[in-house]
Amino acid sequence: MHVQIVLFDGFDPLDAIAPFEVFHAGGMASGGAVTVELVSAEGPRDVVSGTGGLSLRATAALDPTRAGVVLVPGAAGPIGDISEVDNSEDTIPVLLGRTLETSLPALLKEALAQPDVLFATVCGGSLIPAMAGLIEGRHATTHHGGMDLLDATGVHAVPARVVDDGDLVTGAGVTSGLDLGLYLLEREIGPQIAHAVEELFAHERRGVVWRNTGPQPAGF
């Protein structure tokens, strides 16, 4: 399983690095069954995050046709008003909105159309395809501050830490990138590999992974 983690200007470093380390460790534990790289829509470049000017190096261009996982992190910065996407300050809504003016939405649309690509997001990363109209009618989650916007785009917003909607798997707040990565390792590679990585990181996954299966709860 090859994982492409997509960087964009203003991304949140923890959204990207937490799953990167999970998948890298999963690759070591599985004898190379998992590989991971940092990519961008523009190709190899230093990408500046929204956290204190910290930069990470994207080593390749996002290939939306490559089988495996495409993972989109959220943005980091002042929270701001989620409705003020034209604000001149680099708030999280502004940073996410700017991605819609790049080639990223078209690449993500192509990735979502591939039957052998699993699309994943962490935190506000789900708002990028949502605002681009790419996941309308799907079930997804995001940071609690963006749930209303996610719902407003026509996505079924689910207040769970990880939401599995088939070929779309999304994580909620920033640290959910660890849980999402471990869940994808378990789902795609196997529980023993995921458990080994979980032990290595001394981290226990939180909450139930929400799926659109089984009876609906009543009386809540």
Results as ranks from 00 to 15, higher is better:
A16N: 12
H2D: 14
V39S: 03
S126I: 01
H144M: 12
G43R: 04
H24G: 13
V163E: 08
F11R: 11
V3Y: 04
A172T: 10
W210A: 12
A202H: 02
I128D: 10
M131A: 14
D148E: 11
D90K: 08
D63H: 04
L108N: 06
G166H: 06
A25E: 02
V94F: 08
Y183P: 05
T102Q: 12
G10R: 11
L38A: 06
G32L: 01
L184R: 03
L95N: 06
G124I: 01
S126P: 01
R98H: 08
A106M: 04
F220N: 09
R98V: 03
P191Y: 02
T65V: 01
A58Q: 02
G124A: 10
L38H: 02
L38W: 01
S40W: 03
H156T: 07
H139T: 06
L14C: 01
A157M: 05
G43F: 02
L56N: 02
A160R: 13
V169F: 02
H156D: 12
F220A: 08
N87S: 14
A29F: 03
E21R: 15
S55T: 15
R205D: 03
A132Y: 00
V197L: 12
I135W: 05
L182Y: 04
I193C: 04
D116S: 10
H144Q: 14
W210N: 11
K109A: 15
G97K: 12
V122C: 10
V162Y: 05
A132I: 00
T102E: 11
G173N: 08
T51R: 14
E42F: 07
P217C: 03
I5Y: 14
A25I: 00
R98T: 06
A202T: 05
V122Y: 03
V155M: 09
K109F: 00
E21A: 14
G146H: 04
R211F: 01
A25L: 13
G146E: 01
R161I: 06
V72L: 15
L100P: 04
V39R: 05
G68Q: 08
G53D: 04
A132E: 00
A61C: 10
G207V: 05
L150G: 11
D151F: 00
F201L: 15
D46K: 10
E188M: 14
T213S: 14
R98L: 09
A194L: 12
E198Q: 15
L95F: 02
S55G: 14
L54R: 06
V94N: 10
Q4G: 04
R98Y: 07
G26W: 06
V69S: 10
Q4C: 05
H203V: 11
K109D: 11
A152L: 01
D167R: 13
A157I: 02
D179Q: 03
S40T: 09
Y183F: 15
V122A: 05
N87W: 13
L100D: 04
V158E: 14
H24W: 15
L14E: 01
S55I: 09
H144F: 15
H156I: 07
